[in-house]
């Protein structure tokens, strides 16, 4: 698939010397859902803001749909819908007026039928004549999405779309994102909820301290960086790890009834076969074995820790 957004050596250093983005390069493919994952202040929002034209980069280039975001900003921005992190919305306007306004700003001729379709898809149609300030927080967030979709963007940025959103709305939001993807819209979402990235994304990019640590297919990332834990349940309890097993870095768990062994699934030798035979030699009899896969959360934390 062709890259719809191409980011090359992007940097942003603020006047006070703070580096928000440091040499970020990234290709976003048309039609994918990319999740940008990172702790607060990692540079996710800055990256989005540069691509959308809100922040001027201090280094590097970005093209959107083949258009440079500075020299051909009109063509580039026309492709993009942005849903900001903060709920920023005209309080005294009606839902329909605020949506109509957004469409106009992006240079599109009025199209009430399209606006109706967008508002219906977001369950906002019956609220179209309600003033924004009278809406609940979740509804306001949906209005922001309606504004972003009002001009039929090919790319949608969702900056922390489900921060502070209840479970039902979060599920709705996820369903909506999938529908949009099925319609061919490229979606870039930022989140610090690992679950969200795990549920939604085709690919995951991890950002920390302004650096893009990696971008990887979600499943491959899980496999590649996934570590497993083998828990060996013993017939008789132990108080400490026998010296003969010291080299495995085992930990005693479940009040001595089990030993845990962490290993890398990608390593040439996982060490499991040796461990099991050494256990037998040490005279320990095994009652049960179980393995657990690490979640994206652990993957993420270990990446961020490496970067620290």
């Amino acid at each position: 698939m062709p890259a719809i957004i191409s980011v090359r050596n992007l940097g942003k250093t603020y006047a006070n010397g703070f580096t928000a983005l440091d040499d970020v390069s990234l290709d976003i493919e048309e039609g994918e859902i990319l999740a940008l994952l990172g702790p607060n202040g990692a540079g996710k929002t800055t990256l989005i803001s540069v691509i959308c034209g809100l922040v001027q980069p201090t280094a590097g280039t970005v093209t959107v749909g083949g258009h440079d975001i500075r020299s051909e900003y009109r063509a580039a921005r026309a492709l993009i819908g942005l849903v900001p992190q903060e709920i920023t919305i005209e309080p005294f306007e009606k839902v329909i007026a605020t949506t109509r306004f957004s469409r106009g700003l992006f240079g599109k001729a009025p199209d009430e039928a399209h606006l109706e379709q967008v508002l219906r898809a977001l369950s906002l149609w019956d609220k179209k004549d309600t003033r924004n300030r009278e809406l609940s927080g979740g509804m306001k967030r949906r209005v922001l999405i309606a504004k972003a979709l009002s001009h039929e963007p090919r790319i949608l940025f969702l900056d922390e779309p489900t921060a502070g959103v209840d479970v039902n709305l979060r599920k709705d939001m996820w369903a909506l994102v999938r529908r949009l993807r099925d319609d061919g819209v490229t979606i870039i979402l930022t989140t610090h909820y690992i679950e969200e990235a795990e549920q939604m994304a085709d690919r995951i990019g991890v950002i920390d301290k302004g650096r893009l640590l990696l971008v990887e297919d979600k499943d491959r990332l899980m496999r590649k960086l996934g570590r497993k834990r083998l828990v060996i349940e013993l017939q008789a309890p132990l108080t400490s790890v026998p010296d003969a097993l010291a080299r495995y870095n085992l930990t005693v768990e479940r009040d001595g009834h089990a030993l845990a062994y962490d290993y890398d699934t990608q390593a040439d030798r996982t060490g499991i076969a040796h461990l099991l035979s050494d256990l037998a030699q040490a005279g320990l009899s095994v009652r049960d074995l179980e393995t657990t896969e690490s979640s994206l959360e652990q993957v993420f934390l270990s990446l961020v820790e490496e970067n620290a």
Binding site: L54, T88, E90
Partner: peptide, 16 residues
Amino acid sequence: FPKFIGTIYELLSAPM
């Protein structure tokens, strides 16, 4: 007012 309430983001990200 858009600056104050934050909706200026939309003006600045629009192709205008």
